[in-house]
Simulated scan of single mutants.
Amino acid sequence: MYAARDPFEEHADDFAWCEDVIRRNSHSFYRAFSLLPPRKRKGVYAVYAFCRAADDCVDVEASRERLDGLQRDLERFDAGGMPRGPLWQALGVVFGAFDEDTAPFFDMLEGQRRDLSFRQPADLGELEDYGYYVAGSVGLMLLPLLRAGRPVDDALRADAVALGVAMQLTNILRDVGEDWDAGRVYLPAAVMEEAGLTRDDLAAHRANAAFRSAWERVARRSEELYLPLQRDILRLDEDSRLPALSSLFLYRGIMDQVRADGYSCLERRSAVTKERAAALVDEARALLARDEKAALAAEGR
Rank of each mutant, 00 (worst) to 15 (best):
V47N: 03
D78E: 15
L124E: 15
Y45K: 05
V60C: 08
M141P: 02
L70C: 05
F95Q: 06
E100T: 13
E61P: 00
V44N: 00
G85E: 09
D107P: 09
D78Q: 13
V44G: 00
G80P: 04
L143G: 03
E126K: 08
R52L: 07
L142M: 13
M141S: 01
E128I: 12
P104H: 07
M82G: 14
G136L: 02
F106V: 04
K42D: 14
F33S: 08
D99P: 00
E65L: 11
D73C: 15
R72Y: 06
D73M: 14
D55V: 04
L140C: 06
V152L: 12
R76V: 13
D78R: 14
L109R: 03
D129K: 11
V60R: 14
A32K: 05
Y30V: 04
P37E: 12
D123Y: 06
V94P: 04
D101E: 09
A62P: 00
Q120W: 02
A103K: 15
A148V: 01
D68N: 13
G81S: 13
Y30Q: 12
A54N: 07
G125R: 14
L140K: 01
F118D: 05
A90G: 01
V134H: 00
F50A: 09
K40E: 08
V138W: 03
L67W: 01
D68R: 12
V94W: 04
D123K: 07
V94R: 06
A148E: 08
G149H: 10
V138M: 07
L142D: 06
L142H: 10
F98P: 11
Y130E: 01
L116K: 04
C51M: 10
A49P: 03
W88L: 01
K42M: 15
R41P: 12
D73A: 15
F98A: 09
F118V: 09
V93W: 02
G80K: 08
A49S: 10
Y30W: 15
R147H: 14
D129Q: 12
L143T: 04
L35R: 14
G81Q: 14
G131K: 10
D68K: 10
Y30I: 04
A46F: 05
R31Y: 03
L143W: 03
F118I: 11
Y48F: 01
L91R: 02
L142I: 08
R66G: 09
D55H: 06
P144K: 10
V134W: 00
A103V: 15
S63K: 08
G111L: 07
G80V: 07
R52P: 05
A97G: 09
G131S: 15
L145T: 01
E128V: 09
G149C: 13
G136I: 02
D153Q: 05
G80D: 07
E65H: 07
C51Y: 05
Y45G: 07
G85Y: 12
Y45D: 13
E75K: 10
Y30E: 13
E65W: 04
L87V: 04
